[in-house]
Amino acid sequence: MDLIKTKYLIYSISYEGVSRRETPQFPIEALRESLMNCIAHKSYEDATPTQISVYPDHVVFWNAGRLPEDWTTQKLFEKHPSRPYNPSIANALFRCGDIESWGRGYKRILEAVGSYNLLPPVVQVLSGLMITYYTDVHSQLVSQNLDKRFMPVIEYVAKNGAVTNSDVQRLLNTSKATAYWILSQLDNWLEIQGTTGKGTHYTLKGFTKDSLKRELF
């Protein structure tokens, strides 16, 4: 972590009064959780080392780990039981204070990226487990080939936590009916909260700041 923080990350500089503040381009707590996951869940019979790749707009962690057979990558971001691939290593990390508790790592990751108004990282199974963090929402949406017409909607949700039909009308200068159609096209990204009326809004699937707060606290 010291090597990543001192050699590979870029920091933005700001000031609070006379105090200098340095903010890293990626949420440090999320990167730390991914590094701990690489250690605890690596398949050590595979001699391939853990790989960390840092780019201008994203950072990638990969290790030769495997998910339980009945799990999908989406399940990692949902409430799930702890099933560490290497229980003895996970227990050692827990006892020495490097991980807070088993099974909460991805919730902590979501909390960290949420504090940066970012989307959840991209998790893929590619001859191992790979997780990618992006410095900004737009870069991530481009990498995931989202239609450019819909990007302002997802960017708005990431920043504000939710979006309504009225918000979409204002953002894209469109009609109420077209706004509903746009929201329906984003059903892989958004889920509806409420049923009908003014209280209806849309949040990122599996990642709402309010629901995350209830899970954690």
Rank of each mutant, 00 (worst) to 15 (best):
Pro56Ala: 08
Pro56Asp: 13
His58Ala: 08
His58Ile: 05
Val59Ala: 09
Phe61Ala: 09
Trp62Glu: 02
Trp62Arg: 11
Trp62Pro: 01
Trp62Phe: 13
Trp62Asp: 02
Ala64Gln: 10
Gly65Ile: 13
Arg66His: 14
Leu67Pro: 04
Leu67Arg: 11
Leu67Ala: 12
Pro68Gly: 11
Asp70Met: 10
Asp70Asn: 13
Trp71Glu: 13
Thr72Leu: 11
Thr73Ala: 14
Thr73Cys: 14
Gln74Gly: 10
Lys75Asp: 15
Lys75Leu: 12
Phe77Met: 11
Lys79Met: 09
His80Leu: 11
Pro81Asn: 09
Pro81Met: 09
Ser82Asn: 10
Arg83Thr: 15
Arg83Ile: 15
Asn86Val: 09
Asn86Tyr: 10
Ile89Pro: 00
Asn91Tyr: 06
Asn91His: 09
Asn91Asp: 08
Phe94Glu: 09
Arg95His: 10
Cys96Pro: 00
Gly97Met: 04
Gly97Glu: 03
Asp98Leu: 15
Ile99Arg: 03
Ile99Met: 07
Glu100Trp: 07
Glu100Pro: 02
Glu100Cys: 07
Trp102Met: 08
Gly103Val: 07
Arg104Ser: 11
Arg104Met: 07
Gly105Ile: 07
Gly105Glu: 04
Tyr106Trp: 15
Lys107Trp: 07
Arg108Gln: 09
Ile109Arg: 01
Leu110Gly: 01
Leu110Asp: 00
Ala112His: 03
Ala112Glu: 01
Val113Arg: 00
Val113Asn: 00
Gly114Cys: 03
Gly114Phe: 02
Gly114Lys: 02
Ser115Asp: 08
Ser115Asn: 14
Ser115Thr: 06
Tyr116Gln: 00
Tyr116Trp: 03
Leu118Cys: 00
Leu118Lys: 00
Leu118Asp: 01
Leu119Asn: 01
Pro120Gly: 06
Pro120Arg: 04
Pro121His: 04
Pro121Tyr: 04
Pro121Ile: 06
Val122Asn: 06
Val123Tyr: 04
Gln124Gly: 02
Val125Asp: 01
Val125Trp: 02
Val125Lys: 15
Ser127Phe: 15
Ser127Glu: 15
Thr132Ile: 15
Tyr133Thr: 03
Thr135Leu: 01
Val137Asp: 00
Val137Lys: 03
His138Leu: 12
His138Thr: 10
Ser139Arg: 07
Leu141Asn: 01
Ser143Phe: 10
Gln144Phe: 05
Asn145Leu: 11
Asn145Trp: 07
Leu146Gly: 06
Asp147Trp: 05
Asp147Phe: 07
Arg149His: 04
Phe150Tyr: 14
Met151Arg: 15
Met151Ile: 13
Pro152Leu: 07
Val153Thr: 12
Ile154Trp: 00
Ile154Phe: 02
Glu155Leu: 06
Glu155Gly: 05
Glu155Met: 14
Tyr156His: 14
Val157Met: 05
Val157Ala: 07
Ala158Pro: 00
Ala158Ile: 02
Lys159Leu: 15
Lys159Arg: 13
Lys159Tyr: 08
Asn160Arg: 12
Asn160Ile: 05
Gly161Ala: 05
Ala162Ile: 03
Ala162Phe: 12
Val163Glu: 01
Val163His: 02
Val163Ile: 14
Thr164Ile: 06
Ser166Val: 12
Ser166Arg: 13
Ser166His: 06
Asp167Thr: 08
